[in-house]
């Protein structure tokens, strides 16, 4: 015990970069982010944590400490797939995927470049398809996606072909009648 005390340095005081940030996230996500006591069950269970730059528990801690800049530029927020594993296991009932979604929203609002460009490009193309037709039309969605990130074509042409020959992607769009109502929702969201 004595030896341990002797080697301990005085910890630097914790500085909160932006004290209002956590409350903003809490208000927008309706998730009680300040309750997180860092048990890390979310990080341990997260299926995509291995590819993230910050693990889900770290993201929550960074929210608490107001480290907005680093979060908005992170890969983690774009690699969360919303599988709800973390939220299901959280002892404090924080559905972390909602926190991740709000972080992405703020990143887009504030013009931060999405760290996962291909993930962003797919979401964009997917939503444009719904805005256009009211439903997803896979062929035009994929075409738009590939136009944005042509470098993905060689890697994905194989699976595209496999589905194409089985008649799974070659369909005419089935646009809904009330496209206006759907467009109105997109306008409300500013998308």
């Amino acid at each position: 015990m004595e030896a341990m005390t002797a080697t301990m340095t005085t910890p630097a005081p914790i500085s909160v970069a932006d004290p209002t940030f956590a409350w903003t996230i809490q208000a927008r996500s309706h998730e009680p982010v300040m309750r997180c006591f860092y048990c890390q069950k979310c990080s341990i269970g997260c299926p995509t944590a291995f590819a993230m730059d910050y693990q889900p528990a770290q993201v929550l801690k960074m929210v608490q400490l107001g480290q907005k800049g680093a979060l908005l530029k992170s890969r983690a927020i774009w690699l969360c797939i919303g599988c709800e594993t973390c939220g299901t296991r959280c002892p404090n009932d924080i559905r972390i995927n909602n926190v991740m979604d709000v972080l992405k929203e703020i990143a887009l609002e504030e013009g931060a470049t999405p760290a996962e460009k291909t993930v962003y490009a797919l979401h964009r193309s997917f939503l444009n398809s719904i805005k256009r037709f009211g439903r997803l039309h896979e062929l035009t969605m994929l075409a738009e996606y590939i136009l944005h990130v042509p470098q993905k074509l060689p890697a994905e042409i194989g699976i595209g072909w496999a589905l194409f020959v089985r008649g799974k992607v070659l369909h005419l769009w089935s646009a809904i009648k009330e496209r206006g109502a759907v467009r109105k929702l997109f306008d409300r969201a500013g998308l």
């Binding site: 997917f126 439903r135 998308l191």
Partner: peptide, 13 residues
Amino acid sequence: NCCGATSAHSMSL
């Protein structure tokens, strides 16, 4: 209409 799937909640809750 489409539910928006992962893409809708990723861009706008």
